[in-house]
Amino acid sequence: MKNHSAQNFSSASNRSTESILKKTISKPWLWAFIAASLAFAATMVISGGQGGSSLFYTAMTFASFAAIVGLGQMLVITLGPGNVDLSIPATMTLAATVALKVMATESGMVPIGILVVLVVGALCGLMNFGLIILLRIPPIIATLSASFIFQSLAIWSNRGLRIKPPEIMGQFVTGGVLGIPNVAWIGIGIAAVVWVVMERSITGRWISAIGQNLRAAKLSGVPVNRVRFGVYLTSAILASVSGFLLANFSGGAALNMGTEYMLMSIAVVVIGGSSIAGGNSNVPGIWGAALFMFLLVSMLNSYGLGAGVRLMLTGLIIVVLVALASKPGDLR
């Protein structure tokens, strides 16, 4: 829709050069990366160009956690209005606490720990979708009430103890290859897979089709429930993977470790240029937005602003960005 109007607009004059420019500018994911670069540059101005590479490294690390959950949330939101996964923070916490407990700081247990993460994620996804399909609960409420239960399970399973990650995992998540952190490689890899699925496979078409018009998708023979099941499962598994990486990175699972990722996961989807109304996803934008969200905070930090002002500006910037990005008359 947006591309069309941009092209029509430009056809009036200087068609050849301007349309290319417009096409590039109308790529919503580009804006996220531009904003991220601006925030990076603004931070560099303050530090006088010092510590650029370490800021890049940290940003890539933290952006990975947000990008991985954001990709899952993006798939869910693409399913259309009313679809959102509010259980992401609780799933992250639950998977991380259980896995760290199972591994019990022993490096040899890492493969089993990873298996546990995947199983916990799958079970959480199963629970979410079970509530949605069997009890016909709206996804917001289904994932919300499921998250209450996941949260209790997490509290019950670790009793407030902070179990350290195995040494080998601690080294892996803080380490990097070719100047890119290992967790970022994982995040980029997952993003690549999701991109291929969304842009090059029939499954991706199905997901978008359901988001654009559920009834039409159903009538044209899309296996709606199977696709939705897959999406909710994927979202939960990605959340648990991200939670696991985060817990290993920060030296143990904390009960509130997932809290900020509820807002973060939705924010990166919207800032990244995916449609909040569903039906239109944008994978590169997720990474751009995740980088932007981290760099924005570190920029505000480097300007010496306190936590309160920082939070306020972050919120205002999100609201302003969304208000500018959407046009009156766009479908919600």
Binding site: A307, L311, M312, T314, V319, V322, R332
Partner: peptide, 18 residues
């Protein structure tokens, strides 16, 4: 502006929190 309320209120939650 026909904005998604879920995102605007999400942003506002940062503002009120701040």
């Amino acid at each position: 502006r026909n904005l998604p309320a879920i995102v605007v209120t999400l942003g506002m939650s940062f503002v009120w929190g701040g």
